[in-house]
Write a protein that binds this DNA or RNA. Structure first.
Lengths: 205, 205, 205, 205
DNA sequence: TATGAATGAGTATTCATTCAT
DNA sequence: TATGAATGAATACTCATTCAT
């Protein structure tokens, strides 16, 4: 299995082709329903061929999540461009929420891999660490905005976690349609939460 | 098919035996890895025998989640006993968090069924509605405490959702071990969140 | 398992109840789809209860076919009442055809049991002989009519077999809808066949 | 799923190997008793491997029946070679009878698929039409011989159906051993029937 | 780099039947 | 006479993965 050090452009193009197929299958069939065969078929490949490009089905998932987290980071980054600190915090937080609100599949993927990451603890450990780092990196703009507002480092980290947790919980209710039964709306609740959060930090500063 | 109206005690005992086995398998193998065969084996039964007690594998899951939600309701209920409204809100919220903090399997179950419940929309629709109602019912003490503190009905519902979302998000980070990488601790963050929440409602009232 | 020698009327009524249920299930689900559970359910019984009335599922089938053959015999019998020999032959033959044309389920049953009867050769041997005799008896009017027309015994038996074979083949094509693709119609072909048959016998006599 | 356009000889050989195994299992266990596992085992394969060569168990059945009908067609075809029309009709009819008299399994297969073909009406509809056409095609020599004898097209079709029906009915009695109880013999009856048939057509012409 | 072929373990569910009560 | 409980064997089919070519 010759996996060259300097991957050619063609090789990279094929990988992307497969990842695109995987994204399409996820969107159409959902995460559990997506089989390697289906991904291969949609990519115009034989199942066996995928193993020249990825180590396993989980590796494909991982790659997909990696790209998603990168896109998330860029979304937050561009949300904080050229603004005062409090508005940056506000916009970064809402950008996080909006990112997953408009990409339910990516949220699924994140749930799947972040939860599954616990069990084996052996094989996926490397990738696990990588994904952890990618997530932390993507969320960084939130922490930085908090610091710019005068918060200490520990507080900033707490803010980051709070935003992540609140948004994630609301998104879960949102994407499963459960939030309707409470007569509320996810984005409005998120906005309200961020308002409080900003006020709290300003009180601290 | 012969499901008698007055289930004997023995019958009920056996059902619980099977449910216990299912819980054990879930804990050991994870939700997705749990097969009917495994559950039957752990219960000392043949796979076919389970169908005398439950209609399907999903029915077992549903029953398990149902029991879990009932226990959750009781936990919240007893948390608000004999207290002033603000302490009731605090304690009910933390009871929710603690319930799932100490029962990771139940959180898994809830995730699985609440997320999967969307797709079929046909068969499981009844159970879906039932579970929805059970969840709403279990969370009721939180909303009631908010109302006792002077909040309107709509605000109380929002509080309920906020607590659910924040706790759920934190629990996700907690049970997957991710929260460590942010240098924080889930329960402390939850306590902090509830403090702010109570303060906010008091300001409103 | 007390199987009394002098079956009470109540016992017989219950047997008929079960047989009726079986007939209903066959009609609704087809022969292969009919399960003992389904029959029991439709009869208001538990599967196990049926074993007090019948030795096996096959025994129920056998009983059903037995009753069917009896009815067939009565149909042929009444078709030959008070007529000249040639008309008797004609009418008995067409009565055979009509009987199964209007009762597709009975034809199914006959096929199933008469074909399956070959293999085991052990258990069902008794019933097999019984069914054989019942069929031969039901067809008797055809042979008798031939004899009345002047045919010898051997010829009469051949006539009987010919009628049975021709009708059966046509019914098969009829009930499966295949006959349409040949642009013909089963009953017309049967009538034509019987015409020829009668003419042939008259030529012989 | 990767079913190449130019199937290699090896591939075809393996398909035949599986079909042979299926034929053997059918002969040994009967049609209903034949399981995919059994077929795979007899072919020296894992059950899953069969799915690389056939889409489903029914597809195997269909292929088998298809080959059988083709062989039937060839048998009739070669029976009518270089003869006068009346002898052609005689020989084609007897060839049909003989074909199934010497291949009881093929008759079983035909019964199974032609009768089962009715119910689903959805999935197997295509194959159903194909088999219909194959049967009609195989029987064509009979109709052609009738036409050569001077029969009209409609009459020729009726002759074809008559021969099919009579032979089929006799074969049923023959293969189940029932014909013995009538003191007759299937082939002799078929010959007699064909004699009458030829005489009738000659009278018409 | 890719394929065709194959594996082996696994899936939930259904069936006729048995037996103690 | 009937039930509830249970069995054991069977069902077709799917999956991620491997390997020789």
């Amino acid at each position: 299995m010759p996996r060259p050090d300097r991957p050619s452009a063609a090789r990279e193009r094929k990988r992307e082709l497969i990842l695109d197929a995987a994204r399409a299958v996820f969107a159409a069939e959902g995460l559990e329903g997506a089989s390697l065969r289906a991904i291969a078929a949609r990519a115009g490949y034989t199942p066996a061929a995928l193993y020249f490009h990825f180590d396993s089905k989980e590796a494909i998932y991982g790659e997909l999540l990696g790209e998603s987290l990168e896109a998330l980071g860029e979304a937050l980054e561009s949300a904080v461009q050229d603004t005062s600190a409090d508005i940056a915090l506000r916009q970064a937080s809402m950008a996080f929420f909006d990112f997953y609100a408009t990409r339910p599949g990516d949220l699924d993927l994140g749930f799947y891999l972040f939860r599954g990451g616990m069990k084996p603890a052996g094989v996926g450990a490397d990738r696990d660490r990588q994904l952890n780092a990618a997530l932390a990196n993507a969320l960084q703009p939130i922490a930085e905005a908090a610091i710019d507002m005068g918060a200490g480092e520990a507080d900033a980290r707490r803010v980051m976690v709070d935003v992540f947790a609140h948004a994630t919980g609301l998104l879960l209710l949102h994407h499963t349609g459960r939030i309707r039964m409470f007569g509320t709306e996810a984005k409005a609740q998120m906005t309200g939460y961020v308002d409080e959060l900003v006020a709290r930090i300003e009180r601290l500063g």
